[in-house]
């Protein structure tokens, strides 16, 4: 599942990033496999998006979020 397609408020876990020009930037910002990420806000025109990534707020455009692959976070109780 792609980060650009997830629902508001559902905690997801990043599994990988497709090759793209800003892959390094995303990873430096903390988008690495295993990191938990939740969609918290959608800008009024439907773009960009804002996420809670490991406790801080990161925003990006849909066109950027579609390079990040996520899956539902299973170990919610931890």
């Amino acid at each position: 599942m792609l980060l650009s397609e997830i629902d508001l408020g559902v905690k997801m876990s990043i599994t990988g990033i497709e090759p793209c020009a800003f892959k390094e930037k995303l990873m430096e910002m903390g988008c690495i496999p295993g990191a938990s990420i939740t969609l918290t806000m959608i800008a009024p025109m439907g773009d960009p998006l804002a996420f809670n990534l490991e406790g801080y707020c990161l925003s990006m455009r849909r066109s950027e979020a579609k390079y990040i692959i996520v899956e539902p976070k299973l170990d919610e109780g931890k």
């Binding site: 020009a21 800003f22 930037k25 995303l26 910002m29 960009p48 804002a50 801080y56 707020c57 990161l58 925003s59 990006m60 455009r61 950027e64």
Partner: peptide, 11 residues
């Protein structure tokens, strides 16, 4: 430079 909008929204 690369044009992207990957930006922290500070508290």
């Amino acid at each position: 430079s690369l044009n992207y909008f990957i930006m922290e929204l500070p508290i």
